[in-house]
Amino acid sequence: MSPNTRRHLQSAAVIIGFFLFWEAACVLFHVKEIVLPRPSQILVTLWERAPAIWPHTVQTLYTTLVGFALGIVSGVLIGVLIGSSRLAYDVGYPLLVGFSSIPKVAVVPIFVLWFGAGTVPAVLTAMIMSLFPIVVNVATGLATTEPELEDVMKALRATKLDILFNVGLPRAMPYFFASLKVSVTLAFVGTVIAETVASNRGIGNLMMIASSSFDVPLVFAGLLVLALLGVGLYAIFSVIEGRVIGWARRKDDFAMG
């Protein structure tokens, strides 16, 4: 067995062990289903109610991805601006910090006021949730360009755009991808918050209704779906990251490919 498979098997065993422990604890201590359902119950619920859960899942995934995509585009633009201009840095940073300190639950009613309940507030909430880490990381990445390298470029009479595209942005890529992995999970949080407060579709809404009718296994099934979606997207971005910025990890397979 290669050390790598061994490592994967070990981590899988620990994760499965966690759920077995949960199952066993619920059985041993006679925990009621309404307090904490067993993992097996959650899975059964997920399976039996799949036709009902599925449209909500699609809705949440769709909302999150649209919001996340908007977050990436605006985050990169704002990050480039803040990272390359002193004035934009001085103005933009306090604004951003202030804005990101606002609890997003408080913003959702405003979006509802503007755009009505439904998909749009959820998209926007996902977007602003995922925005901040992207902006900060892109700006930091741009700011870490070595001054000597900048001198080399300036001595070649490179324009600001030349420096940005040849040095700044590639240098910021590892930071950007690190932020994407954080942001994509935050985007889910944003979507679910908005769906819980003001929507009649999506996993957030499903969980709201389920909990108000004390259908706790369904609530947990919703949580499981969210967790799976989050892990899935995280994994996808990790793979893209490895392909694009292998140089930052000094992987030999990057050099070969």
């Binding site: 000597e148 080399v152 030349d162 140089w247 930052a248």
Partner: peptide, 24 residues
């Protein structure tokens, strides 16, 4: 220009690094 620190770009191969001025 060349400095004590070689300041090559880590995401480019040596050849692409050398060709950078030609791009600019």
């Amino acid at each position: 220009m060349a400095f004590q620190n070689p300041t090559l770009l880590p995401w480019l191969s040596i050849r692409d690094n050398v060709m950078l001025p030609l791009k600019i």
